[in-house]
Amino acid sequence: MLLIRCPYCEEERPELEFRNAGEAHIARSANMAGESDDDFEKFFFIRSNPKGIIYERWRHMHGCARFFNAVRDTVTDKFIMTYRAGEPKPSKLPIISNEVVAK
């Protein structure tokens, strides 16, 4: 079970309190009705599903109930960082290696 840092509770909490909510930073058009078929397809159906860094939404469902954003590495499963909903996609990520140096 992962620990996930909730940016609203400002602490790590057990994964059981959270729900994944799909890819982040997919903006809903302000003029939804006017979207072309292609744009709607991109908005609604197309997801990046990367190997490596993914930006995704989570909800602290059984905690503060807030939706927030997270950067996670799909290879290591590690959370790189989390930030509040509405904040821009971080331009720079903290470097987190999967390897802790031998102690």
Binding site: N98, E99, V100, A102, K103
Partner: peptide, 24 residues
């Protein structure tokens, strides 16, 4: 824990090499 073992050629055994978590 996803740590990677390393082979010690002298003693012919695999021992903990690279750690992936906060353990020792």
């Amino acid at each position: 824990s996803r740590g990677k073992v390393a082979f010690n050629d002298e003693t012919k055994r695999f021992v903990p090499g690279t750690y992936a978590q906060d353990c020792v």
